[in-house]
Design a protein around this nucleic acid. Structure first.
Lengths: 363, 363
DNA sequence: TTGTAAGCGTTATCAC
DNA sequence: GTGATAACGCTTACAA
């Protein structure tokens, strides 16, 4: 027999049911040794019967503790990059018995400000934020009464907080270098509108081109493509130029796939290099290098930093300076097998996380 | 000048700072008209100066309201299916000013039980759960003291709760029918180990085969492939049989991509039909039909049902029977263009959600 | 217009 | 061993 619907039972009801005081119930549920085995049994039975569960809200209020919650604020959960990041955060939080409150900003700074304020009002113990813009004043420590913040995937702008970044610059340099090593000189750059990551990737690209003494044709730098279709159109434009690019470096896989589609439409032999490993990358039938990395690791590292801040705060050992962790990238070459067959079996040369169960589709 | 670190200020501190009573602060922050403009101003100034934020935990405790939170429990957030579902939930929750507490079970029922109990202890107002197994007793209403539950993507087993499902059966039937219409009779079925969804898809497949009077070769039914590599291996095995399949129906895109890889390795002309639309589906150079759908819609519908339950509970209009919503699927044909070029431009014939910003990769 | 008292569900402290 | 009392931060009800 269990509770008959309605609002959750309180300690008072359990106490009444067991014929003891509230305090005894509290103690029994805490395995306090001072309560006699007999009463403890009675209390537990009553609690069981009512499906009683301690109200953690009330508990944490009384204890003065915060909430046992972490806030996680991302820009677009539909993007696997952020959902894998979220999984990384959840994993570490769960291991510490903490809950994760998830919000999506859609890259809207105003919404971000609102959400962050909300999370603070709910007394989360800390937040991991993928900041939407350069206005980050609302993420600063005094604003938040000392609730620690870690920025993920994008760096702080004028605020003193920890952050975990990807080596966008280094990855872009290495990927560009591969194209140069294959003899390409006229290289197009495709990216979405510049958030910080794309800008870093462009910076890496430029740096290598410059170091190689190549005079970059500025018409080849196009940073407006948000989706595959736009990328395909832009790539077509570039390929139609006289003295068109012989290769593209793409700041993400959407742009790379667009470039691939455009390349298929010409007879030109185009090489590709891009960020973000993707399914079927080895079956494209053209030369492709991808900058690969583990988004979940960004989440895990962010959570690790955040938890250490939370611990530091409770030990009043506050004062360590903002930390910045930069996670490495790996470049994977997918050869230009004639028609996409043989060579590199799926995941063979790819880093381990490629092989994890992150592929699209229902279970 | 703002607050000097430390734990968040309380109303008492704001009151002291403004030289008024706690009650006046409460009223001022609520825009209660009974407080004079002068004092209101003083209070707001003090609050501002201390970066005061109402403690929503304490507030909701006093109000007897639950927490303004929804619980969301998924099996694998790294799978875009579930992260898009999560985004759907978050969108509706945010529109109602509610927070989402996110947990990942990794398909472990024991963890699910623990998480659900936790969420109840934190007094979430309701939960959306992708159940990991057939033991769902912990999701039943009495167990949860009347906290409403909605199951997403998988049906209830012996419990009376709302659920939102995909039309796995219907989608599978239609996709199989396409293969039959193209003249295929020897069709292999590939799926991951049977959770409910895959089983339904197999049921749809069998039903159409049977209706067509085709005697299904049971060697062709293989339900063990969790990832692309395993699927490729299995498909290779089947293709090596005498009288091998001329087509595959795959229960998800991982199996489809495996089958594609295997098909590329033979000279046979293989047709494919599968669940889950995926990038580059139109560039594969073989006949492919995909069952497409919107995972975010599952999340949105689940949230809608859950919120309506929550409203019903507060209106004590409780008593409507469990509802079951089945969301439709669409079959998209990607023609067998010679080498993956021309025809169907990306997303042209695909449903609108294909074009949304759900493509992999960093922003 | 403002302040006081009581209580939401829990626990620390002190009494019995 | 067990129970009364006060308090966490806030708000409703009532008094001034």
């Amino acid at each position: 027999m269990s509770a008959s619907e309605g609002s959750p039972p309180t300690m008072r009801e359990v106490a009444a049911h067991a014929g003891v005081s509230v305090m005894t119930v509290s103690r029994a549920l805490h395995d306090d040794p001072r309560v006699s085995p007999r009463t403890r049994a009675r209390v537990l039975a009553a609690a069981e019967e009512l499906s009683y569960r301690r109200n953690e809200l009330a508990r944490s209020l009384r204890l003065g503790r915060p909430s046992g919650m972490l806030g996680l604020v991302v820009t677009n959960l539909a993007n696997p990059f952020y959902s894998q990041l979220a999984l990384g955060v959840e994993t570490l939080a769960a291991a510490r018995g903490m809950k994760v409150v998830l919000s999506n900003t859609g890259d809207d700074v105003e919404r971000e400000r609102q959400i962050v304020s909300d999370l603070a009002a709910w007394r989360v113990e800390g937040m991991i934020v993928v900041p939407a813009g350069r206005d980050q004043s609302h993420l600063d420590s005094p604003q938040l009464n000392g609730i620690p913040v870690v920025l993920a995937a994008r760096p702080p702008a004028d605020i003193a907080v920890d952050c975990v970044l990807l080596d966008d610059y280094g990855g872009a340099k290495e990927a560009t270098a591969r194209l140069l090593a294959s003899g390409h000189q006229r290289i197009g750059f495709l990216s979405p509108p510049a958030v910080w990551n794309s800008a870093e990737r462009l910076r890496g690209f430029r740096s290598v081109m410059e170091a190689a003494g190549i005079d970059l044709d500025e018409r080849f730098v196009r940073c407006e493509q948000r989706d595959v279709t736009a990328a395909e159109r832009t790539a077509q434009e570039l390929l139609a130029l006289t003295n068109s690019p012989s290769a593209f470096f793409c700041a993400n896989s959407r742009n790379a796939i667009g470039a691939y589609r455009a390349a298929r439409g010409t007879n030109q032999d185009i090489a590709l290099s891009c960020f973000d490993d993707f399914e079927l990358a080895d079956m494209l039938g053209l030369s492709l290098s991808v900058v690969s990395y583990d988004p979940a690791a960004i989440g895990r590292e962010s959570a690790r930093l955040l938890l250490s801040r939370i611990d530091a705060a409770s030990n009043s050992k506050d004062g360590l300076p903002p930390r910045r962790i930069v996670l490495p990238t790996t470049v994977v070459d997918y050869g230009p097998e004639a028609d996409g067959r043989k060579g590199c079996p799926a995941g063979a040369s790819a880093p381990s996380w490629r092989r994890s169960a992150t592929r699209p589709g229902t279970p």
